[in-house]
Structure formats: structure tokens, C-alpha cells
Lab assay of single mutants.
Amino acid sequence: ALNRGDKVRIKRTESYWYGDVGTVASVEKSGILYPVIVRFDRVNYNGFSGSASGVNTNNFAENELELVQAAA
């Protein structure tokens, strides 16, 4: 299972961040479909780089994520 702070690569092909590595911000335990919230260094097309207006978190299912580096 994934944990907060883990570095993960995104495998959801239609995602803006496909192939990117993000950090797990939190994992919901309530049984929702996309329980893993991942935070990225770059914002998506809703904002400009360096601006706070873009979105830099997204929810994924565990099977859409590949663990790159476990949290220390």
C-alpha cells in the first residue's frame, strides 16, 4: 500500500501528469474510488508555472500509480 510522502509515477494515460512523478499527500481509507491524493511540482494547464492558480494535486487509484521511492 502507498503511504504519505511516497514518490509515485503516474500511469493513467489520459492524465496531464502521465509519466510524471508526484508525492503522495494523503491516502483516504473510506473506500472511495480514487483514494490517493498526489501532489506535483508543476501545475496543470489551469494555471501558469509559478502561479497559485493552477491545480497541482489530483486523486488517483492505487493501480494507476507506480512506487518510485518509499517515504523515509
Score class of each variant (00 low, 15 high):
1 A>D: 08
1 A>S: 12
1 A>L: 13
2 L>I: 10
3 N>K: 15
3 N>Q: 12
3 N>H: 13
3 N>V: 11
3 N>R: 15
3 N>W: 07
4 R>V: 14
4 R>K: 12
4 R>F: 07
4 R>P: 12
5 G>V: 02
5 G>N: 04
5 G>L: 03
6 D>I: 04
6 D>G: 01
6 D>L: 02
7 K>I: 11
7 K>V: 11
7 K>H: 07
7 K>G: 00
8 V>D: 04
8 V>C: 05
8 V>W: 02
9 R>E: 05
9 R>V: 10
9 R>I: 09
10 I>H: 02
10 I>N: 04
10 I>S: 01
11 K>M: 14
11 K>C: 10
11 K>E: 04
12 R>G: 02
12 R>S: 08
12 R>M: 08
13 T>A: 13
13 T>P: 14
13 T>F: 13
13 T>W: 08
13 T>M: 14
14 E>R: 05
14 E>D: 14
14 E>A: 12
15 S>C: 10
15 S>R: 02
15 S>V: 02
16 Y>H: 05
16 Y>P: 07
16 Y>E: 06
17 W>S: 01
17 W>Q: 01
17 W>V: 01
17 W>K: 00
18 Y>A: 04
18 Y>G: 00
18 Y>M: 03
18 Y>K: 02
19 G>K: 04
19 G>E: 06
19 G>S: 03
19 G>R: 03
19 G>N: 11
19 G>T: 03
19 G>A: 05
19 G>Q: 10
20 D>H: 07
20 D>P: 01
20 D>I: 07
21 V>M: 04
21 V>N: 01
22 G>I: 03
22 G>F: 02
22 G>L: 04
22 G>P: 02
22 G>E: 01
23 T>R: 04
23 T>F: 06
23 T>C: 10
23 T>L: 06
23 T>E: 13
24 V>E: 00
25 A>T: 13
25 A>F: 11
25 A>Y: 10
25 A>I: 15
25 A>L: 15
26 S>R: 13
26 S>E: 10
26 S>W: 12
26 S>G: 14
27 V>S: 02
27 V>A: 02
28 E>P: 05
28 E>Q: 13
29 K>Y: 11
29 K>F: 07
29 K>I: 09
30 S>Q: 09
30 S>G: 11
30 S>M: 07
30 S>Y: 09
31 G>W: 12
31 G>E: 13
31 G>P: 11
31 G>V: 08
31 G>S: 10
32 I>T: 14
32 I>A: 13
32 I>M: 12
33 L>N: 10
33 L>Y: 05
33 L>S: 10
33 L>A: 14
34 Y>W: 08
34 Y>P: 04
34 Y>V: 03
34 Y>I: 03
35 P>V: 11
35 P>N: 14
36 V>M: 01
36 V>D: 00
37 I>M: 13
37 I>P: 00
37 I>T: 14
37 I>A: 10
38 V>K: 00
38 V>W: 00
38 V>C: 02
39 R>W: 08
39 R>H: 13
39 R>K: 13
39 R>G: 04
39 R>Y: 10
40 F>S: 00
40 F>C: 02
40 F>P: 00
41 D>S: 07
41 D>T: 09
42 R>F: 06
42 R>N: 12
42 R>I: 06
42 R>M: 04
43 V>H: 08
43 V>A: 07
43 V>K: 08
43 V>T: 08
44 N>Q: 15
44 N>P: 06
44 N>E: 11
44 N>V: 07
45 Y>D: 15
45 Y>V: 15
46 N>L: 07
46 N>R: 02
46 N>S: 10
46 N>A: 07
46 N>H: 10
47 G>I: 08
48 F>I: 14
48 F>W: 08
48 F>A: 15
49 S>T: 13
49 S>A: 09
49 S>Q: 13
50 G>R: 00
50 G>M: 06
50 G>T: 10
50 G>F: 06
50 G>Q: 08
51 S>N: 11
51 S>C: 14
51 S>F: 08
51 S>P: 12
52 A>H: 12
52 A>S: 12
52 A>I: 09
53 S>R: 03
53 S>M: 12
53 S>H: 15
53 S>A: 12
53 S>I: 13
54 G>Q: 04
54 G>Y: 05
54 G>I: 07
55 V>G: 06
55 V>W: 06
55 V>Y: 09
55 V>S: 11
55 V>K: 07
56 N>C: 15
56 N>S: 08
56 N>P: 04
56 N>H: 07
56 N>V: 07
56 N>R: 07
57 T>H: 12
57 T>C: 14
57 T>P: 04
57 T>R: 05
58 N>D: 15
58 N>F: 10
59 N>P: 07
59 N>E: 06
59 N>D: 05
59 N>Y: 11
59 N>C: 13
59 N>L: 05
60 F>P: 01
60 F>K: 04
60 F>A: 02
60 F>Q: 01
60 F>N: 01
60 F>C: 01
60 F>V: 03
61 A>F: 05
61 A>G: 09
61 A>D: 06
61 A>K: 08
61 A>E: 05
61 A>P: 01
62 E>Q: 09
62 E>Y: 15
62 E>A: 12
62 E>V: 15
62 E>T: 10
62 E>W: 13
63 N>T: 13
63 N>P: 04
63 N>V: 09
64 E>V: 03
64 E>Y: 01
64 E>M: 01
64 E>R: 00
65 L>Q: 02
65 L>K: 01
65 L>M: 02
65 L>P: 00
65 L>F: 02
65 L>D: 05
66 E>W: 02
66 E>I: 09
66 E>H: 04
67 L>P: 04
67 L>K: 05
67 L>A: 02
67 L>N: 01
67 L>F: 06
67 L>T: 02
68 V>M: 05
68 V>G: 01
68 V>W: 05
68 V>S: 01
68 V>A: 02
68 V>K: 01
68 V>H: 02
69 Q>P: 09
69 Q>N: 11
69 Q>K: 08
70 A>G: 07
70 A>H: 10
71 A>S: 10
71 A>Y: 13
71 A>T: 09
72 A>E: 14
72 A>S: 13
72 A>I: 15
72 A>W: 11
72 A>R: 08
72 A>P: 14
72 A>F: 12
